[in-house]
Each structure stands twice: as structure tokens, then as C-alpha cells.
Design a protein around this nucleic acid. Structure first.
Length: 271
DNA sequence: TGCCAGGCCGAAA
DNA sequence: TTTCGGCATGGC
């Protein structure tokens, strides 16, 4: 069935190619195919919203939540107008939304992302899923689930060698074994504060401030994560040297995404 | 060939 | 506590 979601604050290219997710493909006709959990979606942009191609109404509900439909982005952008830089950044990138992704997949994905680039991250994650996930659909060339912690925890570095993930392999295995053993209970993080969640995630080898922030934001929507990102902290320092603007309120993570894209277009990368 | 990619680890200062 | 070299791989 086709399900239409009317919204003027979702740009598929801005959101799905922003580096917060790695399991979407742009199809020849401009639509996107993607998978989350055991849900497969084809989604295409239209002028005043997006069209979901899904099996039933429940699937549409799942994807609405994935795309963070309960957050009022227009209201947030209006609020951000109190700060000139944030106003420009949010209006220019008003189609970006913070997805609600599954914690384990987000954790492994951002471990893989460290000192890496988006095309290669996407490739490694694709090979991970094709090798150790489950093929649940033949659509779009085959759709594979993200492997669970139990599956990954049983693997060896040699098993993961074909992924060509390099030094990150031992981090992936440490994360999987800690999650599978229960040493790190990802569900418990929903109830934690940002600081608690960060400290907790950093008990995993290969998870530092940056990876933890990405997981806390993209899986848990713990938006206190601004502006710990090394890059944005440096490029925004001169704008927000005296502290963050009041209008950010609790929406620091969303602000971070707007500002990241805004500055990325204007500033050479800073190491 | 050399540099870089939304970093992190571990050792040295 | 902070700094910094090393780390695998692939694209440019």
C-alpha cells in the first residue's frame, strides 16, 4: 500500500544522506529503499510530504516513528530564529530530521564510522549485514537485517576480516560481547541521563566521546549532546564562545545537525 | 605518492 | 591530565 505523510520538514536526501544512518540507497527513480529492524521501506519525496510504500498500516506507523513524526520541527525552527546563525542553519537545512534508530545497530555503525568516510562506512556495514544478517526480502537487490549481538559475539577477528573494517574489528567484537553478555544493557540507557549514558557507553572499547554522542543522539534522542563533536565544537567556538543561545533549549541535538551541515558547507575540515 | 576520512587507544610527558 | 603516534583501509 501507499501511505502519504504530509510534512514540510522532511527532506529525504538531507536526512538519509546526512551521515546519521547507513542503510539507505537512492534508487534510479530518486526514491530511497531502506531497512530498520525487520521493516523494509521504499520512500519517495513529494512536494508537501513523502510517500511510503509499505505492507500495511502498522508498517506505516513504524516508519512514522522512525522519522520522528512526534517532534514538531517547524516549531523548533521557529524557536531557533532567535539566534542569527542558528536561524540561517535551521532554515537552510529544515528538511533534516533526527531519526530514531535501533541502539545496537547505531552503536556498531558509529564504532565503524571512526576515522572513516561515509561511502566506506556504508560498504562495511553492507558487508556486515550481507554476511551475518538475515535476508528477509528480495526487493531492491536483497534486504538484510542488521546482525544481532549474539551473532556477532560468536565471531572471531578472522570471521570479520572480509569486511575490511581494519582496526575497528576488535571494537565491534567487544561491543557485541558486552551487549550479548548483558555487561552493557542498551535498553537501560533510555532511562539514563545524558551523562550516565555517555559514561556507560564508554565502557565499551572503541567508544569515546564522539561515538557515544552519536549513539545517544541518533538512537536515544538524548540531545544534551551539543556541542561535544570535535569538529563542530571548533567551528562554532567563535559563534558561541559565551555559551549556547537560550533558544536551543532542549533541542541541542537537532541544532547540532543543522549547524553541522551549515558549517560543513562553508568551512574547510578541521582535524 | 601522500593525504584524508564526523576517532580511539595507550603510552609518554 | 593532556598530548600524540599508531592504527587498517580505500578513495582521491
Amino acid at each position: 500500500m501507499e501511505y502519504f505523510w504530509k510534512t514540510d520538514c522532511l527532506d529525504l536526501a538531507q536526512t538519509l544522506e546526512s551521515g546519521q544512518c547507513f542503510r539507505w540507497r537512492r534508487l534510479d527513480d530518486g526514491a530511497y529503499s531502506g531497512i530498520a529492524g525487520r521493516h523494509v521501506l521504499r520512500v519517495r519525496q513529494s512536494e508537501n510530504g513523502v510517500w511510503f510504500t509499505v505492507g500495511n498500516e502498522a508498517e506505516a506507523e513504524f516508519w512514522l516513528r522512525y522519522f520522528d513524526n512526534e517532534t514538531d520541527y517547524p516549531a523548533i525552527i521557529k524557536r531557533f530564529a532567535a539566534d542569527p546563525t542558528l536561524k540561517a542553519a535551521s532554515e537552510e537545512n529544515r528538511g533534516i530530521r533526527i531519526l530514531r534508530q535501533e541502539p545496537f545497530e547505531t552503536l556498531i555503525s558509529f564504532i565503524i564510522s571512526q576515522n572513516n568516510n561515509i561511502p566506506r562506512i556504508t560498504g562495511i556495514i553492507g558487508r556486515l549485514c550481507e554476511s551475518f544478517g538475515e535476508r528477509i526480502s528480495d526487493e531492491y537487490g536483497g534486504m538484510y537485517t542488521f546482525p544481532d549481538a549474539q551473532t556477532l559475539a560468536a565471531l572471531t577477528p578472522d570471521d570479520l576480516a572480509p569486511l575490511r573494517a581494519g582496526f575497528r574489528v576488535r571494537y565491534i567484537l567487544d561491543a557485541a560481547s558486552k551487549v550479548y553478555s548483558g555487561a552493557v544493557a542498551l535498553d537501560s540507557i533510555y532511562e539514563m541521563t545524558y551523562d550516565e549514558g555517555k559514561q556507560y557507553l564508554k565502557t565499551i572499547t572503541g567508544v569515546g566521546d564522539k561515538v557515544a554522542d552519536c549513539v545517544l543522539l541518533f538512537a536515544y534522542h538524548k540531545t544534551e549532546a551539543f556541542p561535544s563533536d570535535v569538529w563542530i565544537k571548533r567551528v562554532t567556538a567563535e559563534y558561541y564562545a559565551d555559551g549556547l543561545p537560550e533558544c536551543m533549549g532542549e533541542y541541542k541535538g537537532i541544532a547540532q545537525q543543522y549547524l553541522f551541515e551549515y558549517f560543513r558547507k562553508r568551512t574547510p575540515a578541521v582535524k
